[in-house]
Nucleic acid binder design. Structure first.
Ligand code: SF4
Ligand code: SF4
Lengths: 151, 151
DNA sequence: CATAAATGACACCTCGGGGTATTATTAAGC
DNA sequence: GCTTAATAATACCCCGAGGTGTCATTTATG
C-alpha cells in the first residue's frame, strides 16, 4: 500500500553514481561498492553491467578491472541517471491514471499535477553529480558503514 | 522500469471519490462506478468495501443499497484519500532509499527532496473534492465512456 | 601459459500488488 | 416469506520488479 517513491533500481543507480562521483577517475570494483552502499551484491553486479552500457559509466574487464564514470560530473544530472535505468516515470501523465482522456477543457488536477511534475523534473535536471560530490551519502557511508542495517 | 507515480489502488481511489463527489448525496452502486471509471469490477468491489471502512464513504447493504460520501466535500482532501487506502508514500524519506542515515550534516538531496515532497503534499492537502467537483474526470467520463480503452 | 581477479551472460526464484471466483449476508418489495 | 438486488467475506491466481546461482569471458601478472 504505497509507492510515490523511486523504484529500488532507480535509488540504487542514484547511490552508485553519487558514490562513484567521489573520485571521477577512480576505477571502482563491485565488491567495494557493495560494501559501502548496501546493495545486494549480485543485483548490484547486474545493474553495473547494465549501467555500463549507458553513456554514464564504462567498465574495464579482466584483472584490476572495474567501473569508472565516463563523463564530467557536471554533465550528469539526476535525470540522466533515471534515463540510464529506463525510468521515465516523470513523463507527465494523467493524475487519475487514465490512458485516454478527451476532456476538451482539462480537469483541475491536470494542470496542477503537470506543474508538480515539472518542479520535480526541474530539481532533478538541475542537480548534477558535481553538486552532490561533496555532500553525498558516500561521505558518511565510506567510513561508517556499520551503522547501516546489515540486511 | 518506472514508478514515480501513484499505485493503481491510489489512482482508483482518486477516481472513485472524485466521481462520487459529482453528487454528494447520491447512493452510487458499484456497477455504475465500474462502467464509468474503467476499474476492474471485482477489484473495485473490494476497494469499495475497504473504503467504506474509512471515514470517507459508507455503504448501505441490501437491495437498493450502494455507497455514499460521508463528509462534506470541502473536508475531504486528496491526501485524506491517500490515507484512506493506507498510502503513506509521501512521508519524507531518504532520497537514496537508505533506512538509516547518521550523517551529521545532511547531504544536498536531503533538504532538496524534503522540499519537493512538501510541495507535493501541499498540493494534495489543499485540493479538496469540492474543488474537483465541477472539473473532475467524471464530467467527461459519464457521457463519453466509449472513448476509453475497454477493459 | 597458468592462475587469479575482475566483469558478462543467462537462467531461475520470491513476494506482494493487482486481479479473479465463489459463497455469504443484508434488506426492499411484491 | 420468497425473490431479488445489492454489499461483505474469503480464498485463490498472475505477473513483473527485485534478488540469487552458476558458469563464461576477459586480462594482469609471475
Ligand atoms: S484532464 Fe484530468 S482526467 Fe483528463 S488526462 Fe488530464 S488529469 Fe486525467
Ligand atoms: S542525508 Fe542524504 S543519505 Fe542521509 S538520509 Fe538524508 S538524503 Fe539520505
Amino acid at each position: 500500500m504505497s509507492f510515490m517513491n523511486f523504484s529500488k533500481t532507480t535509488e540504487y543507480a542514484f547511490r552508485i553514481l553519487s558514490y562513484m562521483a567521489m573520485d571521477e577517475r577512480k576505477l571502482y570494483i563491485s565488491r567495494d561498492i557493495h560494501k559501502d552502499l548496501q546493495i545486494p551484491f549480485r543485483y548490484l553486479r547486474k545493474q553495473l553491467t547494465s549501467l555500463s552500457k549507458s553513456e554514464l559509466i564504462h567498465s574495464v574487464q579482466g584483472k584490476n578491472g572495474g567501473y569508472m564514470i565516463s563523463k564530467p560530473l557536471e554533465n550528469i544530472s539526476l535525470l540522466d541517471i533515471m534515463d540510464a535505468v529506463g525510468d521515465n516515470s516523470l513523463e507527465s501523465s494523467c493524475f487519475f491514471g487514465f490512458q485516454t482522456c478527451a476532456l476538451k477543457e482539462k480537469c483541475t488536477m491536470h494542470t496542477k499535477w503537470a506543474l508538480v511534475l515539472k518542479s520535480i523534473k526541474d530539481v532533478l535536471t538541475t542537480t548534477s553529480l558535481s553538486e552532490l560530490k561533496e555532500s553525498g551519502p558516500h561521505s558518511f557511508i565510506s567510513n561508517n558503514n556499520l551503522l547501516f542495517t546489515k540486511n
